[in-house]
Amino acid sequence: MTFVVTDNCIKCKYTDCVAVCPVDAFFEGPNFLVIDPDICIDCELCVPECPADAIVQDEKISPDQAQFLELNAELAKQWPNINEMKPAPADADKWNGVANKIPLLLIE
């Protein structure tokens, strides 16, 4: 089992979760974080730290968020590792809770 970062992280990108990850499983893109499923140890420490409630266990992911299983695995291999908290984007609170943000995902 592993945890997955889902849609609500897009454009919020709070990094509270990375500070508690004991295995440095988070990777950072331009406006989204992902968890590498090969590194995640299913400890669940990140879940309560996410202000956007964007992290879920892979076995409990809703069908409409299932694409994030593959996205997390794929992008974790491309993006740099992040293991320290950074300030959230200035407009993160505005984006928290906005539905269907996948078209806004920047993959650069």
Rank of each mutant, 00 (worst) to 15 (best):
I10K: 07
D24L: 03
Q65F: 04
I39Q: 11
K60F: 11
F26R: 06
N31R: 02
F26N: 01
V56D: 03
K77I: 00
C21R: 00
I61H: 03
P30C: 07
A52Y: 07
V47E: 10
E59R: 14
L69A: 01
I35M: 07
K60P: 01
L75W: 08
E44W: 10
A19V: 04
C21K: 02
K13D: 04
C40S: 03
P63L: 09
V18I: 09
M85L: 11
C40D: 09
V47D: 07
F68C: 02
N83Q: 14
V18D: 06
A19C: 06
C46S: 03
E84N: 09
V23I: 08
N31E: 03
C46Q: 05
C40Q: 05
Q65W: 01
Q78L: 12
C40G: 05
C43V: 04
C50S: 02
V34H: 03
A76M: 02
E28L: 12
D38G: 15
D53G: 10
K77H: 06
A66P: 12
E49V: 01
E84M: 11
V5T: 04
V18G: 06
A54V: 04
P37K: 11
N72S: 06
I35C: 05
I10S: 09
I55N: 04
N83R: 14
P22D: 08
N81T: 11
F68H: 05
I61G: 00
Q78R: 13
P80T: 03
V5D: 08
C9W: 08
L45I: 09
P22E: 13
I82Y: 05
D16R: 10
N83V: 07
I35R: 02
P30D: 11
V47R: 11
G29T: 05
E28C: 08
L45Y: 15
Q67L: 14
D38W: 05
D38Y: 08
D53Q: 01
Q65M: 10
F68N: 00
K60W: 01
